[in-house]
């Protein structure tokens, strides 16, 4: 068992074109570190230098936006499903 992570088009350059990858960890932060070890560069696209989630991406654990569940401290476990999506936003 592992945690399945869905990768958006724009980040698939880091995953060899794969739409889904697998990782492990107890928290979202640990999962991101694990993913970055296998797919270098991924972490930099998700986490800012200050260690916060980028505002350009939305991350969901089992359909729950992690902004409401503790962001990178969100607990994850084997069998969970994580979805990463680019925020669709802008303005004049």
């Amino acid at each position: 068992m592992a945690i399945e992570v869905r990768i958006p088009t724009i980040l698939r350059t880091h995953t060899g074109g794969n739409k889904t990858v697998e990782g492990s960890g107890d928290t979202l932060a640990a999962l991101v570190d694990d993913l970055d070890a296998k797919h270098p560069g991924l972490k930099g696209r998700l986490v800012t230098e200050e260690g916060k989630l980028h505002r350009f991406v939305n991350v969901y654990v089992n359909d729950e936006d992690v902004r409401f569940t503790g962001a990178l401290d969100t607990q994850v476990k084997d069998g969970d499903s994580v979805t990463i999506l680019p925020a669709v936003a802008g303005g004049c």
């Binding site: 979805t83 925020a87 669709v88 936003a89 802008g90």
Partner: peptide
């Protein structure tokens, strides 16, 4: 058509739940 969750004359964003359902 999506709802502009920002409901603003200068900014737009898809609601995060809407975004997930859309994708």
């Amino acid at each position: 058509p999506m709802l502009n969750a920002a409901r603003s004359p200068t900014f737009y964003e898809f609601d995060s739940g809407d975004l997930l359902r859309l994708y």
